[in-house]
Amino acid sequence: MSGRDSREPEPPATLRAQQEALAAYLRNPAEAPPPEDLDDRGRRVYRRLVFNNLKGLLSSNFPVLRRSLGEEVWLDLVADFLAEHHAETPYFLRVGEEFLAYLAGARGDRSGDPPFLLELAHYEWVELALSVAEEEPGEVSADPEGDLLTGLPVRSPLAWTLQYRFPVHRIGPGFLPEEPPEQPTCLVVYRDRVDAMGFLEINPVTARLLELITEDPAPGAELLRRVAGEIGHHDPERVVAAGADILADLRDRDVLLGTAPPAGPQTGS
């Protein structure tokens, strides 16, 4: 049986092994040993480049969160993310998703983190996700002048309904709630036809109306009567009258794009 002479030097590490060793060190230099063939200056340069690039990406994606936490806490959070999370994608535009996955998963509820941390991060990520979404309102078939009560309201694919425990749209350095209010916060975040971003705080009734428009399309008046029944309102027609103004406002904001065109008569050959 033949084998390598124990006096022979070990073969050089593979490129992959070298990359993994360098990556482990750059992620967490306090825990991983530095690569032997990289001098102190090189280590500092690479570490600074990696950390600063990640910090820059996250700071641009989550500016309110950064200001709300303060610079020292924010830098610690970025360092923890780099050390503890292994991303599933190499694309810069997906770094925000990876950060959310870290906050919701590996980080969990950590002592010292504000209770709104994950929700505020999600709200800021939604704005980024909508700003780069490929859907275009102009590609949706809808009559922009259609009657929203008698026709089927059409919702924009770039209008997302969100519900949070905390009023995330109000959080900032001057407002850092420690307890959520009794009522949840319902929001619509949207991108309009000229690519401007906007948000609208809505009540649970309007949130339910938008949900029905998406999941069970019907004429607007019918959907409003259904909502009136669900909330036990004594006068459904008052709900319809008030709802007409709500539907019109949502269309003005491009949350609704108009009404679905009526189905034409079937013709045979």
Rank of each mutant, 00 (worst) to 15 (best):
Arg94Thr: 03
Glu178Thr: 11
Val64Pro: 03
Leu69Pro: 01
Thr259Gln: 06
Leu187Ser: 04
Arg165Val: 00
His122Ile: 09
Gly56Lys: 11
Ile231Cys: 08
Pro204Ser: 04
Pro144Gln: 00
Val45Ala: 08
Pro12Gln: 15
Glu88Lys: 14
Ala79Cys: 05
Tyr46Gln: 13
Tyr91Met: 10
Pro236Arg: 08
Asp76Gln: 14
Glu97Ile: 08
Met1Lys: 13
Pro11Tyr: 13
Leu120Pro: 02
Pro180Cys: 10
Gly108Pro: 00
Gly56Phe: 06
Val205Cys: 01
Glu201Val: 14
Arg67Asp: 10
Val240Pro: 09
Glu88Ile: 07
Arg47Ala: 11
Asn52Thr: 11
Val73Ile: 07
Pro153Lys: 05
Glu84Thr: 15
Arg107Leu: 10
Arg226Leu: 10
Ala106Gly: 05
Val188Arg: 01
Val189Met: 09
Leu75Glu: 11
Ala196Pro: 02
Gly268His: 12
Ala196Ile: 06
Ile213Asn: 02
Leu187Ala: 03
Glu31Trp: 02
Ala106Tyr: 00
Pro34Lys: 15
Ala159Glu: 02
Pro265Glu: 05
Gln18Glu: 15
Pro29Glu: 03
Pro217Met: 11
Arg66Leu: 06
Leu75Trp: 01
Gly146Ala: 02
Leu77Cys: 04
Phe175Lys: 14
Asp245Asn: 10
Pro35Glu: 08
Glu139Cys: 09
Ala159Asp: 02
Leu256Ile: 05
Gly138Phe: 04
Asp109Asn: 04
Arg107Ile: 08
Met197Ser: 07
Arg225Cys: 08
Arg110Phe: 00
Phe92His: 15
Leu250Lys: 03
Pro261Cys: 09
Arg16Phe: 15
Glu97Val: 09
Arg41Trp: 08
Leu224Tyr: 01
Ile213Thr: 06
Glu98Trp: 12
Glu134Arg: 14
Leu93Ala: 15
Ala133Val: 07
Val140Pro: 13
Ser156Met: 08
Arg7Pro: 08
Glu84His: 13
Val168Ser: 02
Arg238Ile: 04
Tyr46Cys: 12
Asp80His: 14
Ala79Phe: 02
Leu257Glu: 03
Val154Met: 05
Leu49Arg: 05
Pro184Ala: 07
Gly42Thr: 02
Ile202Lys: 01
Gly198Val: 06
Leu128Phe: 10
His122Ala: 13
Leu148Asp: 01
Ala133Arg: 12
Asp252Ile: 00
Val73Ala: 14
Leu49Met: 12
Arg43Lys: 11
Tyr164Ile: 10
Pro157Gly: 15
Met197Phe: 10
Ser131Tyr: 04
Ala106Asn: 04
Gly198Pro: 00
Ala83Ile: 04
Ala104Gln: 15
Leu26Pro: 00
His233Leu: 05
Pro9Arg: 15
Leu26Gln: 03
Pro204Asp: 00
Thr214Trp: 12
Arg165His: 10
Val126Glu: 11
Arg66Val: 01
Ala79Pro: 02
Trp160Tyr: 11
Arg107His: 12
Ala263Thr: 10
Arg27Gly: 03
Ala142Gly: 09
Pro137Arg: 08
Pro29Gln: 09
Pro204Leu: 00
Ala83Gln: 07
